[in-house]
Nucleic acid binder design. Structure first.
Lengths: 230, 230
DNA sequence: CCAAAAGTGTTCACGCTACACCCATGC
DNA sequence: GCATGGGTGTAGCGTGAACACTTTTGG
């Protein structure tokens, strides 16, 4: 063993779990069930195991609370303040996940005392979890402008208005319906279904689905997804 | 101690150190002086100490090899493949640094067998260090479009042509001299000195300096640094 | 018929692109 | 005086912003 007398630490992952409900961006939080700070609201987290990567640890943690696998997941960064956790020197790697909010396992949620909160009505969180949430929000805002990740937060079939509501929630500003529609139509990434959703209006609006193949085709042709100008 | 029976690990930082020389983006690499992989080219790295944050560890590592403090430094992300280091389970946090290439301590460089390499002529690197370099390059390309970090790679006084050469090296494409100049002039972030540099041309070109105060003033007025359209 | 949301058309202004052109100076 | 890089002028094009307008249908 060539590395002698090195300090060592506990390594954790903490997940900021995003959902989108009608017109609100939400976070899934849970009541921490062990000391310290037992009973306080917290991000879902867990310790890294010896035989897994950090990405695998984050996936495992997500599966435990949501029952879902193959979720969109991205690493944010490491949080390493010496006293961020008063009980031990724990370095945490922040992650964020995007899930379809109606896709989760209710039973598991209740088991862990988990609950969805609007991002503008968050409760107090333990340790530096607010900082992790801030970083996740900034990353989501930035990344969603250049990658088609918004669809991860929507059901498979959605209307253009739902899509616009999502981006309005992410960017926290209103978008012109006419220009927004044109922008997405011009990218040619969506399949229009021969079905209208009449919930939102009497006229009804077509349902669309994101088409991964079309996206790849466009990308290979030099196109890049870009919502920077909307 | 509430956390029982948790696995623990070694935590390291590895720094991608960028410099800019005339028209080339370069990296500072060194010959690793301990096992495993002793004598191979490597990023500058070190292990996290118990009483410091990751940012502090990265600063310390940089100071050791360059003799410089207060360097621009930014965390990239964690690299955690189970067998990335064959000698032990080491999780590494990647960082990148931007330094003025002529500002370093030659003595320290020789002591560590360090050397500058053009980014398109890198030698083989140990472990997953190539992956860390790739991430650093992508981050630098992105970040330099929206933050005035390019100046960190230049001397205090520079010509507009030098500035353009820098961005050409970062973006790896040519930029129109006329339009580039106008773009920067319109941002009003630079002080023009009453001095001309005659190295590049007979007419001579004015030297400029980045003015942090002007930048803050512009920013507070709703301006944001943006080179996305050049 | 009317309200209300879906969806289309059209104008305007701004900013990037491309390239022509003038400027200063060392040889 | 001429070659060379510094620096300015400018016409054209593409795209986002704003908003008027048409379509559809349930009540």
């Amino acid at each position: 063993m060539p590395y002698t007398n090195k300090d060592n630490y506990l390594l954790a992952v903490d997940c900021v779990i995003f959902g989108f409900d009608h017109d609100r961006l939400k976070l899934l939080l849970y009541k921490r069930n062990f000391e310290p700070e037992k009973g306080k609201w917290s991000l879902m987290g867990g310790f890294l195991k010896r035989e897994e990567t950090l990405d695998e640890a984050a996936s495992r943690v997500l599966a435990v609370i949501t029952g879902l696998r193959n979720i969109y997941l991205e690493q944010l960064s490491a949080f390493s303040d010496v006293n961020r956790d008063p009980a031990a020197r724990v370095i945490s790697i922040g992650y964020y996940a995007l899930i379809n909010i109606h896709d989760y396992d209710e039973v598991l949620l209740h088991k862990y005392g988990a609950q969805w909160f609007s991002i503008d009505e968050l409760p107090d969180l333990i340790f530096d979890h607010h900082e992790i949430v801030d970083k996740a929000l900034r990353r989501l805002k930035r990344k969603s402008k250049t990658q088609p990740i918004g669809f991860e937060l929507l059901p498979t079939y959605f209307t253009i208005t739902m899509l616009r509501n999502l981006y309005e929630a992410i960017y926290q500003r209103e978008l012109d319906p006419a220009n927004f529609r044109r922008k997405f139509m011009s990218m040619d990434l969506l399949d229009r279904l021969p079905i209208k959703d009449k919930n939102g209006s009497k006229k009804g609006s077509f349902l669309y689905a994101f088409n991964q193949d079309k996206y790849k085709l466009q990308t290979s042709g030099g196109f890049s997804f870009d919502l920077s100008g909307i």
